[in-house]
Computed example of a mutant assay.
Amino acid sequence: MSFSSSSLILHPSSFIKSLWKFSRPHTIIGTSLSVLALYFIALGTTNIPISPSNIKQMLAVWIACLCGNIYIVGLNQLTDVEIDRINKPHLPVASGAFTIKQGWGIVAVMGLIAIAISAFSGTWLLATVAVSLIIGTAYSLPPIRLKQFPFFAAFCILTVRGIVVNLGLFLHYSQRFQGQEVINADVWLLTLFILLFTIAIAIFKDVPDLEGDKKYNIATFSLILGKTRVFQITCGVIAICYLGMIAAGIIGLDGINSSFFVIYHLVLLSLLLWRSEDVNLEEKNAIASFYQFIWKLFFLEYILFPLACFV
C-alpha cells in the first residue's frame, strides 16, 4: 500500500513503520550513539556538568544528524529501486509502500531540515552535515554514483562515519562548550578505531547483496574477491581494531579507566572470534545476521568508550 494524503491520516502507524524502514534503523542507531558518545566525551574531558543549555546543543546536533542520515540512506534507496527489489524487497520504495515521488519528498525535506538546523547551530555542525550530505549524494546519485566503484564506495562510508562525524561533531561541542576548537587524544583514538572499523563494515555490507549487484553490474569487493575472502578481511580488520585498543589501554590513556577499557575490548574481541566461527556464507540470512552483529559491536564501542571516560 502506497500512502496518499488520506491514507496517511487513516493509517499513521503504517506510515511511521514504513518511514522507520526507509531510515535504515541500524544507521539511525549508529548516528544517535555517535552524537551522544561525543557529547559525553566532550563533557567528561572538560569537567563540564550536564545542563539544559548543553542538552539543547546536543538535541540540535542529534536532529540535524538524524535528518542528514535519512537523506543519505533515502537517496540511496531511490537510486537503487530495481536492485533493492532483488536484494532488499522489504524496503518501502522497493516494496511499493512509498512511491518514488513520496521518497523524493521525504529526502528533500530531511535534507533541508538538516541544513537549516545545523546552519543555526554552529559552523562546525554545518560543515559536518554539509560534507556528509555532499559525500552521500556523490555516493548514490548519477552521473557520479561512486557506489559503482568498490574503493570509492568504501571511501565514502569510512570518510563520513570514521572522520567527518567524529571530528566534526567533537569540534562543534568543543567550540560550544569551551569557546575553542580542541581535539584531545581520546577522540583521536576513537576516530582511528571507528575509521578502521568502518572499513570492515564498508567491505562486508555488500556480501548479502551479491545477486542484485551482479545483475546490475555494481562492482563490489564481494564480487571481486569472493565472499570468503571478504569475510576473512572483515574479521581481521575488526580484530586488529580491538588489539590496538587493548594495547592503547595497557600503555595507559589520560582520562580513561585503563582496566575497564582493556577488559571490555577483550570481551568484544572474544565475542567476535566466537561469533565468526559458525557463519555459513552460503546462506543469505546467516550473512545478514553476521552483518547486523558487526553493527552491534559498532554500537557497543560508542556506548562503552564514553563510559570508560567516566568510571
Rank of each mutant, 00 (worst) to 15 (best):
1 M>Y: 06
8 L>S: 11
19 L>W: 13
22 F>R: 01
29 I>A: 08
33 L>Y: 07
33 L>C: 12
42 A>L: 10
52 P>K: 02
57 Q>R: 10
62 W>I: 01
62 W>A: 09
67 C>D: 04
68 G>F: 05
69 N>F: 02
70 I>F: 01
71 Y>S: 13
72 I>N: 04
73 V>G: 03
77 Q>R: 08
79 T>F: 07
81 V>N: 00
83 I>R: 03
89 P>K: 02
90 H>N: 08
90 H>D: 15
90 H>W: 03
94 A>N: 01
95 S>Q: 06
99 T>D: 01
109 V>D: 00
116 A>Q: 09
116 A>M: 06
120 F>C: 13
124 W>D: 11
129 V>A: 02
131 V>K: 03
132 S>N: 03
132 S>I: 03
137 T>R: 01
137 T>I: 01
137 T>F: 06
139 Y>F: 11
149 F>P: 13
150 P>A: 03
151 F>M: 11
153 A>S: 15
157 I>E: 08
157 I>P: 05
158 L>E: 10
161 R>S: 02
162 G>E: 04
173 Y>H: 00
176 R>I: 11
177 F>L: 15
183 I>F: 02
183 I>E: 08
184 N>G: 10
185 A>S: 12
185 A>I: 14
186 D>K: 05
189 L>E: 08
197 F>R: 04
199 I>A: 13
202 A>L: 06
203 I>A: 06
207 V>T: 11
212 G>F: 03
214 K>H: 15
215 K>S: 07
216 Y>K: 03
219 A>S: 14
222 S>K: 03
226 G>R: 05
229 R>P: 11
230 V>P: 01
235 C>Y: 01
244 G>Q: 07
245 M>A: 10
250 I>G: 11
253 L>V: 15
255 G>A: 07
256 I>A: 08
256 I>G: 06
261 F>N: 06
266 L>Y: 07
266 L>G: 14
268 L>G: 01
269 L>R: 12
272 L>T: 08
277 E>I: 11
283 E>H: 09
289 S>Q: 08
296 K>I: 14
296 K>L: 11
297 L>K: 03
299 F>P: 06
303 I>M: 08
304 L>P: 14
306 P>T: 10
311 V>D: 08
311 V>A: 11
